[in-house]
Design a protein around this nucleic acid. Sequence first.
DNA 1: GTGGTCTAGACCACC
DNA 2: GTGGTCTAGACCACG
Lengths: 130, 130, 130, 130
Amino acid sequence: MLLHVNAGDELPIYRQIVRQVADSIAGGRIKPGDQLPSHRDLAAQLVIAPLTVKKAYDELEREGLIETQRGRGTFVRERPPATVAAESRERLREAARRLLTQAALCGVPFEDVVRVLEEAKEKTTERTDS
Amino acid sequence: MLLHVNAGDELPIYRQIVRQVADSIAGGRIKPGDQLPSHRDLAAQLVIAPLTVKKAYDELEREGLIETQRGRGTFVRERPPATVAAESRERLREAARRLLTQAALCGVPFEDVVRVLEEAKEKTTERTDS
Amino acid sequence: MLLHVNAGDELPIYRQIVRQVADSIAGGRIKPGDQLPSHRDLAAQLVIAPLTVKKAYDELEREGLIETQRGRGTFVRERPPATVAAESRERLREAARRLLTQAALCGVPFEDVVRVLEEAKEKTTERTDS
Amino acid sequence: MLLHVNAGDELPIYRQIVRQVADSIAGGRIKPGDQLPSHRDLAAQLVIAPLTVKKAYDELEREGLIETQRGRGTFVRERPPATVAAESRERLREAARRLLTQAALCGVPFEDVVRVLEEAKEKTTERTDS
DNA sequence: GTGGTCTAGACCACC
DNA sequence: GTGGTCTAGACCACG
């Protein structure tokens, strides 16, 4: 799994990690059961403090995407339990709302939003295929 | 111009204002030459500290989007740089990407994403009508 | 709000804080809208590191019990939103399951569990009244 | 003796074993003189490392609940100290307290807590019957 | 080896 | 003043 992090970014480092790992799972680049690097290793690789990576892992665990086992490591979850799935759906609706809001702010009509979405999908697919 | 602000949001209040004004210009809802409310009035309307609005206006002026004329008020600049619209569009694409990631995590196929989007649109329309 | 913390306890310090604050809200000793002490102040009062208190506040916010506003402080939430309420109900059911499990392990029949519950309730009420 | 163990649990695996054995003694499901499975067998049954079970047995022996006889096996001690049952009961009371706190946070009145408990009981019974 | 917790300090941004 | 983030180190417990 390749991650890169930018200290000067608007987004805090730990959230950049959260998002990239979530994207990696969503894109199928890492699969259920896969083990993530230890937060110490990843920290060394990214040249940041271990606690920063741990904070990211903690958030991913709270979201039900990964699972940590003391003394063994952290792994991508098999399948999120029902309550987590419900929250996840709510986040989906929230993301839909935000997209619509932003479209309205840009003066982009609904039909074009779907086109923007399709374009984004193509790029994601390319990324996954490579 | 209708603005709304959320104190609990991840984005600082003053940046929420910056974005909404910038998007309003990009979307054509306010046009070059239009006058913005005084930062005191806007602060009163949003029930926040005047300094916060001032900070937002300052940033908008630094970005070249608006112009303050001492004793007269603040106005939308003529020929706002093309970058404004571009940045607004980029935020739209980013929102689309996030929606797709979240959909993948939920196991929701692309066709259904469009349906979720339509449902969200209906609710928004209802809300707007009332 | 009176909190006490025990470094030698089985439960991590930050979880002790989470529980005591949650109990305080549940017991009505602090009410919606009330401001909590800043995490720095509380840390000084308890003679622990500020980050430890912050971790507790973060968890309470995630659970939807409190709300933080940058630059202003942290407050007890008015009413948890729907999704949070759902999770909260699930935690309730989980707590019920644990109680039954423990009762089975102790060899305590169901009728006596209700009595244990009533005794616990009386003590809680006393605590709240004082 | 039926034990089950959860790697993802907050409580370390070896302490889960300690508790379940202690509670089994307190609940009378295993009696003084009864022989426990060897730590290797139990480890195989629970699909965990033998060392983990050994650690649990060591702690149980330190607490005076069980006794290892070299070359013969490990047995429940005669006249286990009264504290065992007391601790088990204390865990029961603690579980009751948590249930009440969670109920208060959900705004669920005491009468309904009993109903939630009954519902949980039914489900457990169904599960046990199957 | 792994994760879990805690410390003491720093710097920043927000209000 | 407030919260938000990050660091560099420590110690412990677990498997």
